[in-house]
Nucleic acid binder design. Structure first.
Length: 410
RNA sequence: GCCUGGGUGGGGUAGCUGGUUAUCCUAUGGGACUGUGGAUCCUACGACCCGGGUUCGAAUCCCGGCCCGGGCCCCA
């Protein structure tokens, strides 16, 4: 094999694209119905956009290069930063809230595995300008609705970073990060060890383990007992009530950390079976990034859906589009093209381009699963008609082109 | 970056304790069948991932690389 696609990239053949577009259109339709407008940002950005957001540490996983003007450019590894950049650059004075969705490819230089590629697709949503739990709840509900439409059911985990952070407020910042990471990984053993190492106070330690162990109904109540009546908890309570209004099933999970500092409060993740190690199909939360990019501080909430992961597990079988084949003879090829063009206004139509004989054209129609064949022969043309053959039943009738269109459309 | 399994025509495979022309199925192009498909037959096309090493001889054994799968790290 002389030429191969680069590692971690994929080709999508027509059969698969039908499936992907089918799901994509469902997601798109829902986002639109919920009042979100589609946006598109550049495939590449200045690399600072991403290092500002995620730290220098991400450089190792980014596709970057210097362009001919000596600018350091990165293929986008995600879409939240570009959306916020776009907002800061041209939309700060727009009426709030701003509600956007996007569907695009992203690039990360990572070791490929199941559900993880170097070029992958994200379908995401951001709502900019609201601090309130209403927007958090809407975004979560929208995520669930999208997954449902794709035939994917998952476990929804909802948390709030403010609660654990309040507990850790007296801990050194660099320790906080480490603790959050261990908590997020649900690595209780590692967490114990680390807390030992930094001599964490017993009181804090006990509360921390109890907090991240809360999953059920009265989690809010118990959390309040543990860390006091702080704002984050009241917010969280309102959010959970709203999720009930949306009729969502969820699990409280105060251990979700989502890695980075700019998440401000609500965080959520949705997990699915059947994806191996990469079982998260959706993740998001509320965050503040605008100020980091030089804009006014603006609250936002959003999420990204791992489109490829959905495709991996969704069970949909969209109907293949109906196809019909116009079959002709040596002396009627030109007429066949004209008739095919009329049919093409209504259905997907094939006409022979291989110089095949009559019989082989019908055979071809059969192998591509055509529902009908329109036969354009001298005899039919003399009568001002064509023969319409139903490939399922084998029945054949003499009709005008217009009648053929009508019959084939149904 | 680390651990682990794998790579034979377009797809699926046999061979892989080294030894003629690399097996079979399928798909594809052409034909037998001259205005009616699915069948059959004929024919064509087409592969040992790449590079080095061992050997008289390598698809087969060894090393390195590339790519794929699974896991770790990471996951914005």
């Amino acid at each position: 094999m002389e030429l191969q696609k680069p590692r971690g990239t994929r080709d999508f053949l027509p059969e698969e694209m039908i499936k992907r577009r089918y799901i994509e259109n469902k997601l798109r339709k829902i986002a639109t119905h919920w009042g979100y407008g589609e946006i598109k940002t550049p495939t590449f950005e200045h690399i600072e956009l991403f290092t500002l957001k995620s730290g220098e540490g991400i450089l190792g996983e980014i596709y970057n290069f210097k362009d001919k003007g000596d600018r350091e450019i990165a293929l986008r590894p995600e879409l939240t930063a570009p959306v916020v950049r776009m907002y800061v650059e041209e939309l700060q004075r727009s009426p709030k809230p701003l509600k956007f969705f996007y569907f695009d490819n992203c690039f990360r230089y990572e070791r490929p595995q199941k559900g993880r590629f170097r070029e992958f697709f994200q379908f995401g949503v951001e709502i900019i300008g609201s601090v309130r739990p209403e927007s958090d709840a809407e975004v979560i509900a929208l995520a669930v609705e999208m997954l449902k439409s794709a035939g994917v059911g998952g476990d929804l985990h909802v948390g709030n970073l403010g609660i654990v952070r309040a507990l850790l407020k007296d801990t050194r910042p660099e320790h906080q990060g480490k603790i959050m990471r261990l908590v997020d990984k649900k690595d209780d053993l590692g967490l114990e060890e680390f807390l030992d190492k930094i001599n964490a106070p017993d009181d804090m330690r006990g509360k921390l383990f109890r907090l991240i162990g809360l999953h059920c109904e009265n989690a809010v109540h118990e959390a309040r007992e543990l860390v006091g009546d702080i704002d984050a908890i009241s917010q969280f309570k309102v959010l959970l009530d709203l999720l009930d209004v949306y009729g969502l099933e969820y699990q409280v999970d105060l251990g979700i950390a989502r890695g980075l500092d700019y998440y401000t409060g609500m965080v959520f993740e949705i997990y699915c079976e059947g994806l191996g190690a990469q079982n998260q199909v959706c993740g998001g939360g509320s965050y503040r990034l605008a100020a980091l990019f030089g804009g006014e501080d603006t609250p936002s909430t959003g999420y990204g859906i791992g489109f490829d992961r959905i495709m991996e597990i969704c069970e949909v079988n969209p109907q293949p589009p109906k196809r019909i084949v116009v079959v002709s003879f040596e002396d009627t090829r030109k007429e066949a093209i004209i008739i095919a063009n009329k049919l093409r206004e209504h259905v997907s139509t094939y006409v022979d381009v291989m110089g095949r004989k009559f019989k082989d054209q019908i055979s071809y129609a059969n192998t591509i699963g055509a529902s009908h064949v329109v036969i354009v022969g001298k005899n039919e043309l003399d009568a001002g008609k064509v023969a319409l053959k139903d490939m399922k039943t084998g029945e054949q009738v003499l009709v005008t082109v217009e009648e053929a269109v009508e019959r084939v459309k149904s």
